[in-house]
Computed example of a mutant assay.
Amino acid sequence: MDNIAGTKSSLTWAVHISVAALVALWLFPTVGLFVSSFRTADQIATSGWWKALFPTEQSLTLRTADPDTQMSVDGVYVIEGNLFTGEDLSDEIDMSAWGTSSRDIGAYAPGDTAELRDGERITVQANGDYRLESPVEMEGSRGQRIFVTAELPPDFTLENYQQVLFSGNATDSMAKAFFNTLTVTIPATIIPIVVAAFAAYALAWMDFPGRALLIAVIVGLLVVPLQLALIPLLKLHLGIGIGKGYLGTWLAHTGFGLPLAIYLLRNYMVGLPRDIIENARVDGATEFQIFTKIILPLSFPALASFAIFQFLWTWNDLLVAKVFLIDATGQTTVMTNQIVELLGTRGGNWEILATAAFVSIAVPLLVFFAMQKYLVRGLLAGSVK
């Protein structure tokens, strides 16, 4: 009786747990990237993104006022002030330790006095107030460096996005790369869909010699590695003059995406009711009218499913863009290449890299969530009768 149709499986809880685990594995890194994109470099270096809403203990490098602010008091030269003055920090910071050397940044507790060179002495309080004394006039152009360990409140900023999107000139900003990526991705998604839709209809509902062989060739092309065709295709594009711009990139993405598109759409169209098409032919409809008026509207789930795959693949592509977008001036740099440039020039600026990465995945996420309801329907096309 347990296998009767309509009864609820006893393993439903296992399915729910598995789905929840998969969602969590996908969601946690995305949320972490989003939170990190609003944090400062010091916060990212000292604590994980899951602690973003809580105070964190950080090490800061601050300086006293310049020697030209010193005053003579009872024969002693004195510089007084607050280490946090002029810094974009909270007024309620309470330091736990401080030091004058990078080798031991927690050598002193708040209120202690440290002996410096030439008889200089400095005392630092928990709220950042300090008093630097010297028996002789202090010289130099910069103040004494102080290493402070303090617990700082949560801090979120939009400066990362401002720097990523709008800093620099028009050729090296992420905003420029964003529009370049759209310029590559939108045509590279639409062109293969249009071509594949016509080809899939012909292979599904039109009889012509060699149709079965052509279907077999298309299935075989699914396993051809992308890297195998890059160099020959680039030489061809350079030979006909389209190897250094968007047109060559569009055609490359179209060629690499067509086998999957034709296979997916053809399987879906074959599963459509034959009576609808035969009745349309009896009524005098041409093949083009059947295709545009009947097949395309009914095939929207499969079209949307392939559009998601093609858009995500093209948007996240680096290899094809590196090979076919040959531009030394950076006018056609896409986002994936721009992030690589950030990795090469900024190294440990993780707040900038996190922001750039999230800007890069924002559009694919929007496209996926907007069209995900068609994804499963399109993937299952032709799998059951």
Rank of each mutant, 00 (worst) to 15 (best):
L342H: 05
T333N: 04
N349R: 13
V323A: 10
N337D: 11
L343I: 10
L343S: 09
G344P: 15
V323F: 08
A357E: 13
G344V: 07
N337G: 15
F309P: 07
L342I: 05
F324P: 00
G348M: 09
Q331F: 11
V323N: 04
I326S: 15
V323H: 03
G347N: 03
D327V: 13
G330H: 07
N316V: 01
T329P: 04
F358N: 02
V323E: 06
V340G: 10
T329F: 08
W315T: 01
V334L: 07
W350T: 08
T336R: 00
L319K: 07
V320T: 04
T355A: 15
V340C: 00
T314Y: 04
T333S: 04
V340Y: 15
A321H: 05
T336W: 01
T332D: 08
G344L: 11
G344M: 13
Q331L: 12
G330I: 11
T345Q: 05
I352A: 12
W315C: 01
F324H: 04
L342T: 02
A307F: 02
I339G: 00
N349S: 14
F311T: 09
V320C: 00
Q331G: 10
V334I: 14
N337L: 13
T345D: 03
T329C: 12
V340D: 14
I339L: 05
L342P: 00
T314V: 11
D317L: 02
D317I: 04
F324S: 01
T332P: 08
N337K: 14
L319E: 09
G330F: 14
V359D: 03
W315N: 00
L312N: 13
L319R: 05
